[in-house]
């Protein structure tokens, strides 16, 4: 198990390196001049200023030199400096990342808690009215764009009913818990979209398992339907969901990007959104690295969850 873990970690490092290389190249390929973006539109009249800026921050060097310089800094934990926000990227992320983790974490957990029983219930009542209802609902949320769901939420629950705040908690991490009424709508919005995906998978996974021979064996033992579902079907049906959750972390994070923008929630997604508009390359790079790491961790977590749930995997790896 430990060897397996170490091997996966080494693979993860390689993946992250590749990601940094590609994102760095892509960002540099975007049209526009950093110096002008930073110094303001009038700076193009003054080539000397631009040259000085480029020299100071290394923009006059070949791009691969810039990459290695940046990579060297990254290895020391220095993610760069945002000239736009006049703050180091590390401290920016330090403030914003926990907020996103809270948003994504709570909404994913809520989505799972709701989606798993509903998926199982749909499988049991397959092709009956309840199944069709939930199928319709999940397709609706799956198809609806996040910004639309978010906007409707604000209109209905904040503007009309005044039950929750229209804007996410603006303060630090603590405000997420003190201003939970403001956190509710972003969490629900993100959870609804995620729930739609999970419940579909849970339904089909349960359907696959419910017709398996071992389920018939359990019934032949005299186990009640309830016991058959909970003790036998559920665990086996969760195996593909574990992978799904892990692999969907980047998707959920990008969902958070839009949700955060809709609700002005000061998380990483919103930060990314702003940085992209302002050509704030150091910040963009920083966020992308974090997302890349999250993706790799997500698949690592999926693998581990898989091994915990499925003993067949456990023994193959050791």
């Amino acid at each position: 198990m430990i060897a397996f873990f170490v091997r996966r970690l080494l693979q993860a490092v390689v993946v992250i390196l590749l990601v940094t290389m590609i994102t760095f190249a892509l960002l540099r390929a975007i049209p526009g001049n950093v110096a002008i973006a930073i110094l303001g539109p009038t700076a193009y009249r003054n080539p000397a200023t631009i040259a000085q800026f480029d020299a100071t921050y290394g923009f006059n060097k070949p791009w691969f030199d810039q990459y290695f310089l940046w990579l060297g800094h990254l290895a020391q934990g220095n993610l760069g400096y945002s000239w736009k926000l006049n703050q180091s990227v590390a401290s920016l992320l330090g403030n914003r990342l926990p907020k996103t983790v809270i948003l994504v974490g709570i909404s994913t957990i809520i989505a799972l808690i709701v989606a798993i029983p509903i998926g199982v219930y749909q499988a049991v009542r397959r092709n009956k009215a309840a199944d069709y209802t939930f199928t319709a609902l999940s397709f609706l949320f799956y198809a609806a764009p996040t910004f639309f769901v978010g906007t409707v939420m604000i209109l209905v629950f904040a503007d009309e009913l005044h039950l929750f705040g229209p804007e996410g908690p603006q303060g630090g991490l603590v405000s997420d818990f003190t201003d939970w009424k403001d956190l509710t709508l972003p969490v629900v919005t993100l959870a609804l979209v995620t729930f739609a995906l999970f419940s579909r998978y849970m339904r089909s996974s349960t359907l696959d398992n419910i017709t398996e021979d071992y389920v018939r064996t359990a019934r032949a033992k005299g186990a009640s339907e309830r016991r058959v579902l909970i003790r036998h079907v559920l665990r086996n049906s969760l195996i593909p969901i574990a992978t799904l959750v892990g692999l969907n972390i980047p998707l959920i994070v990008s969902g958070a990007l839009i949700t955060e923008s809709v609700f002005n929630y000061p998380g990483m997604g919103y930060l990314f959104f702003q940085a992209a508009q302002q050509q704030d390359y150091p910040t963009l790079l920083g966020v992308l690295i974090v997302v890349a790491i999250a993706t790799v961790i997500g698949s690592l977590v999926a693998d581990i969850a898989y091994a915990v749930l499925d003993p067949r995997v456990r023994y193959v790896s050791s």
Partner: peptide
């Protein structure tokens, strides 16, 4: 079931719960 009558099935690989 399982008390008065026991039953065994054809394929012992698929007829056992793989995670138990």
């Amino acid at each position: 079931r399982g008390n008065l009558v026991g039953m065994i099935f054809q394929d012992p690989m698929t007829s056992l719960n793989p995670t138990m």
